[in-house]
């Protein structure tokens, strides 16, 4: 059974009497351990898809099963709990809390999960080691470079051992070199077993993932799995150097 199953999911907004179908009857399966990218131009509905997959939003129609649980009609309180336990987020602008240091930022999801302070600290340090940021634990976000902030944000996304991590344009605010190291980090994490979904408008970034889901006008335009197609032997990080 897939980790996430979308069946006939639609999200419809009403703006000034006009109906806007941000998502139109989407079917999608994501399996555990997959490394995927969701790609599409702005306004295509990819953000809406990510919000719905990430339990930040509920669909107008359709059913979503996350880890076997139906969440399309869950209450906001249940959604908050699912976000806390099963989902990690990485944002374009890092979104670390400036008043807290790196360790406290990483601990934050565990605070809401109700962990004791010792366990919080241990697991947060573990997550920081995973992204090689354990030596910056006491720094404030503002004292770090963009790449370091994004690593800390990734540690925060991982600290709850989520079923899936969503990264929304994670390299969008970084220079290309730093962006590459972040993508490499995602790939390493994927190899260690994390399920990761990159959301991007950039085909070059999407190229690093084995599976690409392209969204256009609220519908899945392409759903290419390189492994199944046998087109790709391994990931390529060098941007612009992709197999034809």
């Amino acid at each position: 059974m897939a980790l996430i199953e979308l069946r006939g999911v639609s999200k419809i907004y009403h703006l000034g009497g006009e109906e806007i179908r941000a998502l139109d009857n989407v079917d999608l399966d994501i399996n555990g351990g997959e490394f995927i990218s969701i790609i599409g131009p702005s306004g295509s509905g990819k953000s809406t898809l990510m919000h719905i997959l990430g339990c930040l939003d509920s669909p107008t129609k359709g059913s979503i099963k996350l880890d076997g649980t139906e969440i399309a009609s869950a209450s906001t309180r249940d959604l908050a709990r699912i976000r806390n336990e099963k989902i990690g987020f990485v944002f374009q602008f890092f979104n670390l809390l400036p008043k807290l240091n790196v360790l406290q930022n990483v601990e934050l999801p565990l605070v809401y999960a109700g962990c004791g302070s010792r366990e919080r600290r241990e697991r947060a340090m573990e997550a920081l080691r995973l992204v090689e940021m354990d030596n910056r634990a006491k720094h404030r976000p503002m004292q770090l470079s963009g790449g370091q902030q994004q690593r800390a944000a990734i540690a925060r996304a991982l600290v709850n051992r989520p079923k899936i991590v969503f990264a929304d344009e994670p390299t969008g605010n970084l220079d290309s070199h730093t962006g590459e190291t972040i993508l490499k980090l995602f790939h390493d994490l994927s190899r260690k077993g994390s399920t990761i979904a990159l959301v991007t408008h950039d085909p070059e970034i999407a190229a690093v993932t084995p599976r690409k889901i392209e969204i256009r006008d609220g519908k899945i335009a392409k759903n290419v799995d390189a492994k199944l197609a046998g087109q790709l032997d391994g990931p390529k990080f060098a941007v612009g150097n992709q197999p034809g």
């Binding site: 908050a80 976000r83 979104n95 934050l108 809401y112």
Partner: peptide
């Protein structure tokens, strides 16, 4: 928003 995204409930 960040706090809610990482799991803070209404009550929190």
């Amino acid at each position: 928003g960040i706090r809610k995204a990482i799991g803070a409930t209404f009550f929190d």
